[in-house]
């Protein structure tokens, strides 16, 4: 007869969509952008990605070994951080910077605060900000894409690798083809240039229900609206810089975005406003990473003001008024 039956509280079934599966889906969704980066910037971008991933995973593993924590590198979150960090760097960045960036992201931003779930800002973005402040020249040395260089070889034109936003900031002019911007044939960080690849990843994430459409769509839409309101070209604002990458893959980071739908709407809307304000009035041409970092910090406050919800509330407040 059955000697040992397990007695535990309900529920007795669970979804198979664990963190590991969700992170694997994010990695799959990042693959189109990885391919695009190799197409536009050559194989060196793959080396950069591999460096940052290895750095993130190793530092997380080492930390957990040294401090005798549970080893959780298998949840793949460090891999995602690594890929996103590389995606936020120019292809010309030296590989040692990838290692330093990975160390900063994992040790300072993630593990010092208690590991996955306890970091208050997105590790990849914080590391990018750290690299940008520490080595501004390396982090803003833009290389033209493979195709632009080839086309220029015949002519005598000096090739500039300036990003669309950089050109806009300096000259106030928009001198890029929208189709190039959509496909990714522009200078910039390796993962952010191809809007097309990011949109493919976005659709995959939606189909797999890893994220909902709210944050990316509201973020991008509010950037468009605020840009137009401030007399800028909304479409250019959407296709340029790291907006698409940030909206789909970094603003939606579980840990650092609000938990409720209402909170997410407020969060995404503020992101759009901040991005446009930084781009238009700030000293830097790009504002996506700083807006997301700022809103990450505001997230606990948003969670706090949107917490008060429960079933049957509407009814009660109505009664209270009567």
């Amino acid at each position: 007869m059955m000697e040992k039956l397990i007695v535990s509280y309900a529920p007795h079934i669970r979804t198979h969509r664990t963190t590991q599966r969700l992170m694997l889906d994010v990695i799959i969704a990042l693959i189109p952008s990885l391919i695009a980066s190799i197409v536009f910037f050559g194989i060196k971008s793959l080396f950069l990605v591999l460096t940052t991933v290895a750095s993130c995973v190793l530092f997380e593993f080492a930390w957990q070994k040294i401090f005798k924590n549970d080893i959780t590198v298998c949840d793949l979150s460090a891999v995602v951080t690594g890929i996103l960090l590389a995606f936020n760097m120019p292809v010309s960045a030296p590989l040692w910077m990838g290692v330093v960036g990975g160390a900063f992201a994992i040790i300072i931003v993630k593990m010092c605060f208690g590991g996955l779930g306890n970091n208050f800002v997105n590790p990849a973005l914080a590391a990018r900000a750290f690299l940008l402040l520490s080595w501004p020249v390396n982090m803003t040395k833009w290389t033209p894409t493979v195709f632009v260089s080839k086309a220029a070889q015949g002519g005598a034109d000096v090739i500039t690798g300036a990003t669309p936003l950089g050109v806009l900031k300096e000259t106030g002019k928009i001198s890029f083809d929208y189709m190039d911007m959509f496909l990714g044939n522009i200078s910039g960080c390796i993962g952010e240039v191809s809007t097309l690849a990011i949109v493919i990843g976005f659709i995959y994430l939606l189909v797999k229900k890893v994220i909902t459409w709210h944050v990316p769509v509201i973020y991008v839409a509010s950037v468009f609206i605020f840009a137009e309101l401030m007399g800028e070209n909304g479409l250019f604002y959407i296709l340029s810089g790291g907006l698409m990458l940030g909206a789909v893959f970094m603003a939606t980071d579980y840990v650092t975005s609000p938990m409720s739908l209402k909170g997410n709407i407020i969060y995404a809307f503020c992101l759009g406003l901040l991005t446009v304000v930084i781009r238009k009035f700030g000293a830097l041409p790009e504002g996506v990473s700083y807006s997301i970092l700022l809103m990450n910090i505001v997230t606990p406050l948003i969670d706090n003001v949107t917490k008060n919800r429960y079933y049957g509330k509407a009814k009660k407040s109505k009664e209270a008024k009567q």
């Binding site: 397990i6 535990s8 529920p11 007795h12 079934i13 669970r14 963190t19 969700l22 549970d70 959780t72 949840d75 208690g114 590991g115 996955l116 779930g117 306890n118 909902t212 579980y254 840990v255 650092t256 975005s257 609000p258 938990m259 409720s260 739908l261 997410n264 917490k307 919800r309 429960y310 079933y311 509330k313």
Partner: peptide
Amino acid sequence: KPETYGKEEGTCIKCGKCVDVCPMRLM
């Protein structure tokens, strides 16, 4: 194969999935 036994629980990653599914609209 009991699916809810013996597995160590992880830390909350604030993904908000439980918030989305809670039929009582709690957190």
